[in-house]
């Protein structure tokens, strides 16, 4: 077997793929946050709770209605998105003229309520969710084309490969829709100058509502992906959301491509730290955040105000 730094290259490659897969979650979640912040100037603290709702809905669809994973991937983002629409319509809408802080407090309150209700209904220790048969097992990825050694083979779980692929596809579609289509240009114009856009006959409040619903739906989608990897618990979102906020700050608040790239790259950096010094896994992203803010206060891809 070929080794680098005393580690078989197959294991090292696997660690890097896993870093990429963790980055996929950072990318998907920070993308939703960036869309919501970019279009609405709302800091959506409930993003983690909406991600958790996505995982629970996948569990509920399977265990109560017998609808499997693929149905969940389709239906859950819709359901979580509708929940987001209701939140926007009932609460958030009344806060747009106030400081960012009010939206943050409101969404933080929502987190406490939603998590409390889920603990009450399902308990705190978590629920199992089974992956579809198609995504079970592990894929043999030969590395002999790099090393020339037939024994260098990575065994990567199929589900994790699927998470990477699904996440990249969804991220690119969102980026394309916002940056390259006519609808996306309306959205961007509406954030720059809502009054002018309204004068062109476009219903800006509805567009903003749909944007929030869409950002939240992305969190629900990520939740379904996560259900196949970890125990579905009411607190699964709150431990992730702080890291994702750091990712958004590093990438630059409101930058779509910035969030996607930063998510994947930070996943990779974390993977290296997990091998080199596991104790620092929790803080490495925040250390990077501090360094980036010192050099570029608007984030790596953000525009200076």
């Amino acid at each position: 077997m070929t080794t680098i730094f005393d580690m078989p290259i197959a294991i090292l490659g696997l660690q890097i793929l896993i870093g990429l897969q963790n980055g996929a979650f950072y990318a998907l979640l920070s993308l939703g946050l960036a869309v919501i912040f970019g279009m609405m100037n709302v800091i959506n603290f409930a993003h983690g709770a909406q991600y958790m709702l996505g995982a629970f809905l996948a569990y509920i669809l399977l265990s109560w209605l017998g609808l499997g994973y693929w149905w969940a991937l389709l239906l859950v983002p819709l359901l979580v998105g509708i929940f987001g629409l209701a939140v926007e319509r009932l609460f958030l809408r009344h806060l747009y003229h106030l400081d960012h802080l009010y939206g943050l407090l409101l969404t933080f309150g929502l987190v406490l309520i939603v998590e409390g209700v889920m603990v009450d209904m399902f308990g705190a220790s978590g629920l199992p969710y089974s992956k579809p048969d198609l995504l079970q097992g592990a894929e043999r990825i030969p590395l002999s084309w790099v090393t020339g050694n037939e024994r260098d083979i990575m065994m990567m779980p199929v589900y994790r490969l699927w998470v990477i692929a699904a996440s990249i596809v969804v991220c690119l579609i969102v980026w394309f829709a916002i940056e390259k289509t006519r609808l996306g240009s309306y959205l961007r114009a509406a954030t720059e100058n809502p009054t002018l856009v309204r004068a062109f006959g476009i219903n800006v409040p509805i567009m903003v509502m749909l944007t929030y619903g869409f950002g939240v739906a992305l969190a629900g989608f990520a939740g379904v992906l996560a259900a196949g990897l970890q125990a579905v618990t009411p607190h699964m979102g709150s431990s992730l959301i702080i890291v994702v906020f750091a990712v958004v700050v590093i990438g630059g608040m409101g930058s779509i491509m910035g969030s996607i790239l930063t998510g994947f790259v930070l996943g990779l950096i974390e993977a290296v730290v997990k091998i080199a010094y596991p104790e620092a896994t929790n803080i490495v992203i925040f250390v990077i955040m501090i360094c980036v803010l010192l050099v570029r206060p608007a984030g790596l891809f953000g525009r200076e105000a």
Binding site: I11, G19, L229, T281
Partner: peptide, 16 residues
Amino acid sequence: VRHPFPTTDFASFLLQ
């Protein structure tokens, strides 16, 4: 291997 508390993805530590 000392992992942070809490940890959701153990893949890297399990491989070690």
